[in-house]
Design a protein around this nucleic acid. Sequence first.
DNA 1: GTGGTCTAGACCACC
DNA 2: GTGGTCTAGACCACG
Lengths: 124, 124, 124, 124
Amino acid sequence: MISFDNFTTQDGIPIYLQILLHIKRGIVAGTILDGDELPSRRVLSALLGVNPNTIQKAYRLLEEEDLIQSRSGAKSFMVLTEEKVQKIRQSLLEEDIKTVIGSLQQMGLSKEEVFHLIDKYWKT
Amino acid sequence: MISFDNFTTQDGIPIYLQILLHIKRGIVAGTILDGDELPSRRVLSALLGVNPNTIQKAYRLLEEEDLIQSRSGAKSFMVLTEEKVQKIRQSLLEEDIKTVIGSLQQMGLSKEEVFHLIDKYWKT
Amino acid sequence: MISFDNFTTQDGIPIYLQILLHIKRGIVAGTILDGDELPSRRVLSALLGVNPNTIQKAYRLLEEEDLIQSRSGAKSFMVLTEEKVQKIRQSLLEEDIKTVIGSLQQMGLSKEEVFHLIDKYWKT
Amino acid sequence: MISFDNFTTQDGIPIYLQILLHIKRGIVAGTILDGDELPSRRVLSALLGVNPNTIQKAYRLLEEEDLIQSRSGAKSFMVLTEEKVQKIRQSLLEEDIKTVIGSLQQMGLSKEEVFHLIDKYWKT
DNA sequence: GTGGTCTAGACCACC
DNA sequence: GTGGTCTAGACCACG
């Protein structure tokens, strides 16, 4: 069963996107594997303290990307291939890195200062 | 006059927040200084291709944070102190760094891999 | 035994309501009589290709309207009086007629055009 | 401006479909014409006593059928051609007639009885 | 003022 | 129990 420990919603970003990203990051990290069972709408809804529809929206988008298979009345499962995983990995990494680099550069930081900051805040 | 070159809106984040962030990052970078004049709502609206109300909202929030002041007619000026700048710097840096570290750690990357990626995508 | 030949589910209307209507229309038509036996939930479920719970819901509503009675084991029987039949007849007829007349009038048809159309589509 | 006088919601059918049908019937009747302005979401929502989103859903479906043109911040207008009107007319008429004939036949009525009933309930 | 999107809760059919 | 749909209300960007 896919874990949602350490998940806390933050505002400014739509919740359904945060859920979607959480799952995609788990896929990239290898903690979510092909065939894994997803928590049901209700269960996850209760766990995260959000509306079942918000969960559903995240799941529906994942299904449209062919990463999930849902059937009414039955549980939902991950449907992953190595190729899909690599594609997600590539897109997520690039996006994260480019965004943060853009912000930090605009604030006038040097690469060395960035390295230093990451080192400081990296949770081992 | 504060520059908005290199500013392009990206969707997913409210535009008024993007404008707010752009200005705050300029403050941190030192390219926006105490006393600098802000473009008028009308001018900036035309420049960014954004509705005047959206500009108005960003300016209003900056005013509520005591970072700008409207004087004599429609012109607005930055009202900064070293203390305010440091506070913004601290909050922006921490937020950016923590967010990206959280994402990348969740994807299972090591600190070294992150350094390598930043090095790769850093625009000199 | 009550017949469900010619019954096909159509979407847009809850299936349990369609079953309810099918039975009520049979009552009005006189093909369903007092004392007639209803198919068991399991049998009808298989016959219509519908979930047993859905059948159960339709039967429960009929029971609440005092039109059927469950006796001796799982078998259910129609419990009808002339008065009940007339009441159902009245309500169904009026509802159908008024609904369709409302639609067709709203589309600007004359009574004669409606007669012509019914004549055209009436299956002898 | 398109009229919603005489419109009352009835349950059993999704409200957004009732709104959609009301508009289509107006198109067929010729009371809604190409270029006509639609009431705004909020106005119609208040008028009918339903949620703005329900109105929006009806409008969105009409837009997907190319019967409406919507632009953010601006009003919505009908975009009709004679061809579209005839197609709607055909589909609505057939559906209404076939549905009511099916119901009434199932209740055992003769064509003459149906004519009589329509004559009785027809509002002149 | 306008339309578009996000979150929320209830109901339905199905397993 | 499961996922799918409908209705509801608040917020956003825009004219």
